[in-house]
Design a binder for these strands. Structure first.
Lengths: 231, 231
DNA sequence: GTAGAAAGAATGATCGATTTTTATGGTCGG
DNA sequence: CCGACCATAAAAATCGATCATTCTTTCTAC
C-alpha cells in the first residue's frame, strides 16, 4: 500500500497543540495570560473542541494550567519553577543518558553526529547572517535542531516514560530560555558545550558525559535565574 | 437537567475522570481495551465532550493511550512497563522523601501518624471481617488510605512537579497490584513495612527511610512480576 | 459615599448533530 | 482460493448552539 501525501493530515487538535505550544514557548502567549476560547478561536481558526483538547494536553505538559470553571491560563513562571525544572532535569537526564549510552547502536551514533552537524551548520548560518547579535534560541530552526540534538543523545534509552517526562521538562525550560533571550542581544557564546557533550557520549563515557550534561543544564539555568532575579 | 447539590459540583469532565480512573485501576476496563465513546456514553451517562476531556487527561497520566483518529485505549500492561514504573518510582520517591523529611513540620508529622493509623485500622477491620482471604488492595477504602499514607510521607516536599510525576507513577503501579490481587486469594502479609517506614520517616532518618521505601517498592513489584511471568 | 444586591455581559462547560475517517464485509477478477 | 476493490457501517473528530457559572457594572439603600 502506497503512502499518499494528502491522507495523513493530523487532527486539528494536534495542529492546535503545535500552534499553541509554539506561541507559549516563544512568549507570544505571555505567562499567566488567560487563554479565552473565543480569542483563540478567532486567532487560530480552530473551533472550541480541538482547542479545548489541545489545552488539556498542554496542561499535562505543564505549559498550561486549568482552573475549573474559570478557564485555561498560560502557566506562570517563577524562579522557583525554573529551579524545580532544573532539578528534575538533572535527576532524569543523566539517568536516560546512561541508558542510552549503554544501549545505543551505530544508527544511534549516526543520528547524534547528524543532529550535531545540522545544529552547528545552523549556528554558522546565523553567525554569518548579520543576526549575530541575536541569541540562537530565538531562531525557530535552531531551537528545533537543538531540541533534536538533545533528544538524539537520549534516543537509545529504553524507557519511554522517562523520555516523556524529560521531554516535557525540556519544553518547560525552553520557555525560560526564550524569555531571557528576548531581553539579551548578546549571544550565549558557550558554543563548545555541545561538541564536548557529543564527543563524550560517542566515546561512551557515562560519567563524563553525565557531568557535562548536568553542567550544561546548570549553566543555562544560572543565566536565566540571574536575569529573573534582577527583574 | 436538575442539579440538586449546591454550586460546588465538580465539572462533569472531572467526575468522568474519577469514574474512568477508578474502573481502569480496578481492571473493570481491561488493559488494551478500546474505549469507544458511544459505549462510555451509555455506560456512564456523560456526553462525549466531557468524556474526551477526561480521556485526554488520563492519557497524560499514562492510564490511557491515544491513537490519532483511531480512538482511546486502556493502556496495555507488560512486564517491561511495570519495571519501568518501578525504576522511575525508585528514582523519584526517595528524592521527594528526602525533601519532605528536611522540610516537614509538626503538622506534616501529625498527618503521617494519622494516615498510618487509619490505614492500620482498616487493615484490622478487613482481617476481622472474614474477608481475610482477600488482599487488602481490592478494598477500595484500603486503597484510598494506602495512597493517602504514602502521599503523606512525601507531602512536605516542595516540588509540585516531582510530586505530580510521582503520583502518576503510583496510579500506574496500583493497576498492577489489583491485577495481581484478583488472582491471589492470599493476603500479602508484609504488614510491618508501613510501620517501619513511618518510624524511620518520623525519626528523620533520610537514608534508612529511603532504603525502606525502595525496598517496599521493589518487593511489591517483584511479586507482580513473578505473577506476570508465570502467565 | 459606600456596601450590597441584582441585572447584564462574558466566558467556560456541555450537548446533539454533522462531517471525516477508519474498519468491515462482500463481490469480482485472477 | 486469494487479493484488490468498492459499498456500507462504525466510530472519531469537529462544529455551532445552548446551558451554567463567573465576572462586571449598575442601581439602590443606608
Amino acid at each position: 500500500m502506497l503512502e499518499i501525501a494528502g491522507d495523513k493530515a493530523a487532527p486539528l487538535s494536534e495542529q492546535a497543540i503545535l500552534c499553541l505550544r509554539s506561541d507559549i514557548l516563544s512568549g507570544t502567549l505571555a505567562p499567566g495570560l488567560q487563554l479565552k476560547l473565543d480569542r483563540l478561536k478567532d486567532h487560530y481558526g480552530f473551533s472550541s473542541s480541538p482547542l479545548r483538547e489541545a489545552l488539556n494536553r498542554l496542561a499535562a505538559d505543564g505549559l498550561v494550567v486549568i482552573e475549573d470553571r474559570r478557564g485555561f491560563f498560560v502557566a506562570p513562571i517563577s524562579i522557583d519553577d525554573i529551579r524545580e525544572i532544573t532539578r528534575l532535569r538533572q535527576l532524569l537526564e543523566p539517568e536516560a543518558l546512561s541508558d542510552s549510552i549503554s544501549n545505543g547502536d551505530d544508527a544511534w551514533e549516526a543520528q547524534i553526529i547528524s543532529a550535531h552537524y545540522r545544529l552547528e551548520r545552523q549556528e554558522q548560518r546565523l553567525k554569518n547572517n548579520g543576526a549575530s547579535e541575536k541569541p540562537f534560541i530565538l531562531d525557530a530552526e535552531w531551537a528545533d535542531l537543538h531540541r533534536e540534538f538533545h533528544r538524539s543523545l537520549l534516543a537509545a534509552c529504553n524507557s519511554p516514560k522517562l523520555l516523556h517526562m524529560r521531554e516535557t521538562l525540556f519544553y518547560q525550560a525552553e520557555r525560560y530560555w526564550h524569555l531571557w533571550a528576548m531581553n539579551h542581544p548578546a549571544p550565549p557564546s558557550r558554543g563548545s558545550n555541545h561538541d564536548r557533550l557529543r564527543d563524550a557520549v560517542l566515546e561512551r563515557d557515562i560519567v563524563r558525559s553525565s557531568d557535562l550534561l548536568k553542567n550544561h543544564i546548570s549553566q543555562t539555568t544560572e543565566i536565566v535565574v540571574k536575569y529573573l532575579e534582577q527583574e
